[in-house]
Amino acid sequence: MSGRRWAWALACTCTSVASAVAGQGPVDPVALEAELARGRGLYLVVESERRVLSIRARGMELDAVQLREIRAVWQDAGGEPGPPSPPGEPQVWRITEAPKDEWRRVVAPEVLVPYVDDDEEQEQEEAMPDGSPVAPSPTPPPPRPDRYSVATDSPWRIAVAPSVDAVAPLGWWRRVVRGWRKLVGAAAPPFSPTLVLVVDDAEDARRVVHLFRPEMPVLVGGEPAVDRAPGS
């Protein structure tokens, strides 16, 4: 058994033992959310019943992204004990890494020239020939990603994508490539267990990418919010 699987098995055992010692019954998603709602920060809730990714603060749903499906994908290493079955009860995971920042526009002037006050006045005059300001044409930002995967403090990653195949090697061709690499002795890259949130609209994935950042709590298997805000 690999070290990673040992760690997973140990984590599962410790969690079960801790729950048993504490005399806890089934995990209560509302109790988990009540703890998260005490802080000033946002938190995300994956609701399996409504199939939504809910953006919340203080128990209030600020917005929700409709999901086509929520799928757990994992690698089963034939016969070896170990990871993992999909999470079957509510859990709070914390994101430990942000999606790559390649979508951000970078402005990096090579040299800075001394500031001259007259320039500003000249620009103002040029910008306002008829007395009204002319809006600059901002450089359009690069498109935000519509598929990404982030690590969490659990053994599971969270991915957001328009299809499961986009983030997991489930497609037929990707399986063949993976199989071929294994046949010729090139180790196929291990696939981390991933909870894939399949969005209905790729734009939904783009508009929430900035919320998948380190320390963001994600309540997996939460309940509908007790209150709704206008954006939701």
């Binding site: 089934p26 799928r71 994908v73 690698q75 089963d76 034939g78 079957g88 909870l195 997996v220």
Partner: peptide, 16 residues
């Protein structure tokens, strides 16, 4: 042959 011992599985996610 290659995937026999290294299978990617998937299941719909739902809590209890």
């Amino acid at each position: 042959g290659a995937m026999a011992g290294d299978t990617i599985r998937s299941a719909s996610f739902a809590v209890d």
